[in-house]
Structure formats: C-alpha cells, structure tokens
Design a binder for these strands. Structure first.
Lengths: 233, 233
DNA sequence: CAGTGGTCTAGACCACCAG
DNA sequence: TGGTGGTCTAGACCACTGC
C-alpha cells in the first residue's frame, strides 16, 4: 500500500472522495477503518476522523460504530439553500428595497395554523400581510402568522419601519424550521399584489419556525413571476 | 463568571446558541475567544472550537483569525435539501416506480447547454427525455443532457432498464451541483406528459452537475402538479 | 463481548490579518 | 507583529452495535 503525502484533513477527504468517485471503493462496500487509514496516510486518527466525518455529512459515507464506514449505496446528496433576509436579497441585486404592510391584526388562527399549535392553547395570533418591493416592482408577497405568546414584543412593533421578516430573523428564538416549496397558479389576490395576470405560475414557499415544539411564526410566500431560487452543493 | 457543567461540544454549542438566541450576545458583537470560553466551560479549546465551528457553519457566527468570533449581523440560515434518486423518492411514498424513456439520441447541444461548455469543444451530447411514474401516474418529466466525453459508458447503457438519473447518481463523478427552482405554466408538451391541463403551474428544477469545470449532466425537471419539495434546518 | 467510530484532552505549531 | 482561529498529534475513554 503506497504511502501518500497529505497531512491535512482536506487532502485526506479529497483522496477518499477520489477513491469513491473513481470506484476504487464501491457503493455498499466497507472502507478501511480509521486506524488503518491513519497508518496509511501517516497521520493521527483524529485527522482521518475529521475527513470521514465531512464526507459522511455530505452523504457519501455511512458510518456506524462497530459496523465501520461504508460507501453509501445511493448517495442522497444534500444541497444547501440559503434563507436570506428579503431586504438583503433585494439589495444584493442592486435594487432599492421597500416593503408595504397591507394588513396587521390580531385574530383567531385558521384551522391550518391551529393544527400547528397545542390543543389547549387557543390564543389569538398576530396576522400580517405584506409586500416586498424591489425598485418599486412587486417582488414577494407574504402572509404571516406570529405566535404572540412566544414573541409578545411583536405586538408593539412598528412593522412599517422594519419588516416582520427582518425583525424576526434578528430577534426571534427558534431552533427548527420547516420549509415547503411548490408552484401554484396565481389567485386573484396574489395577481393583484404581484401585478401579474391571474393564473400565472408562482413559486410559493411556506416556512414555519419552531421553538422547541411550539411554533414561532409561519409564513406563506408568493414570489413574483420569474423568480429563481438557487441552491448548490 | 459562573462555571457551567457541559463537557460535550454539543452542550457548548447549545449554550452558545442560547446566549445568541436570548440576546445575551448581540448581533455584530464579538464573543469571548476560544481560550476564554474553554476556561469558562472547563474544557479543552478544541472542544470549544468544534462547537463554534458548527455554529459558524450554520451561519450564526462569523469567525476570523485575529478578528475573533462575532455573532452574525443577519443570520443567513441555511436549509438542507435532500436530492434523492427519483425511484427511491417514489418508493418511499409507498408507490410503485416505473420510468419511460421517451427519447434517446445523440445531438448537438442547444445554445443554453453549449454555454456551459468550454468554447473549443463542440461535441455532440446524449439527449434524453423521460417520464417517472408513481403507481402509473405521471410524477416527474425530465429532459437531460449528458456529456458523453466525461461519461462515455452512458452511450452503451440500456436506459429503459435503469433510469439515467439513477445510473448517474451511482456512477458519475461530480464535485459540484448547481440547482435552480422556479415555477412555470405547463407547456403543451409538459401538460401532455404530466396529464394536466395546459397552463397549470408546475414546480420546475434545473440541476447541473460538474466535474471540475466541465459539466457532467444537466437536467430540467417538471414535477407533476401538487408536488411539494420539502427542506428543513 | 470486542471492534468500531465518537469524543475529549493537553499541548503544539501555523496561517491569517487587524491594528 | 501579536492575537486569533485552524489544525494536527498522541493518547485516552466511552458508546454503540454486530457478532
């Protein structure tokens, strides 16, 4: 077994990646354990561990105690999706950001939203509708529910000055986020706000953030036609 | 400064996360350096490093040598999107998978695809159109280009037996993937294949995978109406 | 039970970069 | 140029789990 130069965990990661890519190590098959690789590469086991851990995080390896490390049978690749603050996303495109608060009221949640809450709590929630503009053109329309039990400060805010989106990102505590993306034909209301013909295909996103098992905020976003959501890995 | 129990990097990560969440450490402000935190938590610096590195990966901290670690001004949260093999995705829903190869030919790439290739190389590429079915209902329609210079074996495959999607995932070498999601009204062709009315809003995805700076395959996916793409963080 | 990965430690050196 | 994070090491113990 030829001894190879690398010292850094990155080089080891790359070398292991190469062996998997070039099918020296086949899907489903075990690879040498950390100690053996450390000997082969002439480095500490911790360094090998770091390299293999990264590859496992990317889904290329399955690792189990005692079971050892195996090349994943079907590499479920994971792409990373950035969730920026809408203002920043617009400004990054070189456009001027503005947002309009269309509706702001405390009301009983819809059945859909109530389903996310514990049975016993029948609190009223803060409901918002707003529009984000890029250079005065409609960019994103949002309908949002905020759990005022968890974020009472939201009630006192001037949401014309700062968008709920931005304020929540900077102030709300949350530990988990669910995210759903789908397409929908524009309803009359969406079409009106986004200044597009009715039935135009819109990219929609629903995001719910949670603090423990209670939801903090849930928002339904409608992107203006032509919006492209990008991700990479 | 009160000394806290935790030993594991997870507990330190959680404690630091709590301090950021609960605004003990404010956005933009520096936090104590690794050595100081190691003393406070009563653990090795490497353990603190591991904890802070995870938080930085999630976008909650900005770290710089000499500059120290600061709470991110606008936490760009990163969601994770799984890219499963279509067959597995369908079978995971308890449905029977089948795919149909609609077209299979070597042809000159369109301008759009040629833009992804180096100027000098004017190779013909393998072009495929296929349909993935769940319980015989249209699930996903795809149009795919494969760079046969990089994956010559693809030319000899029986793509009726195994979908290009699945074969490529298991056999193609790639180091990077670009991913775009958007909505579009169904064209006549899409409507026909997905058995839906024309103009129905469809969730579309374009994925291009790269090996170094050469593209391996580029695919345009049209999901059947009602499809929901989920992610989480 | 024994082998594997998961983690922690204490120490060390280095790369980067703000001051 | 000094302080900070980035990394490597050698050793150790532990947790899980296949056998």
């Amino acid at each position: 077994m030829k001894k190879i130069k690398p010292l850094s965990w990155q080089s080891i990661r790359d070398e292991v990646f190469r062996r998997i890519s070039q099918r020296e190590w086949l899907p489903g098959e075990p690879i040498p354990n950390e100690t053996e690789l450390a000997v082969e590469f002439g480095c500490a086991r911790a360094t090998v561990n770091r390299a293999l851990r990264e590859l496992a995080n990317e889904g290329l390896l399955d690792r189990k105690r005692k079971g050892g490390s195996k090349v994943s049978l079907h590499a479920v690749r994971k792409a990373t999706l950035d969730i920026p603050v809408t203002r920043q996303e617009i400004e990054q495109r070189g456009a001027v950001y503005r947002h309009v608060l269309l509706e702001h009221q405390v009301r009983a949640p819809t059945a859909e939203i109530r389903g996310k809450m514990p049975e016993n709590k029948a609190l009223d929630l803060l409901f918002l509708r707003s529009l984000h503009l890029a250079d005065e053109a409609p960019f994103l329309y949002e309908e949002r529910w905020i759990n005022t039990a968890l974020v009472p400060e939201a009630l006192a805010l001037d949401l014309n000055a700062i968008s709920a989106n931005e304020w929540l990102v900077n102030n709300a505590v949350f530990s988990r986020m669910d995210l759903k993306m789908f397409a929908a034909n524009a309803t009359a209301r969406q079409a009106e706000h986004l200044q597009t013909p009715k039935e135009t295909a819109l990219l929609m996103m629903e995001r719910t953030t949670w603090q423990g098992d209670e939801f903090v905020t849930s928002v339904k976003l409608s992107y203006a036609p032509g919006y492209i959501l990008e991700a990479s890995m």
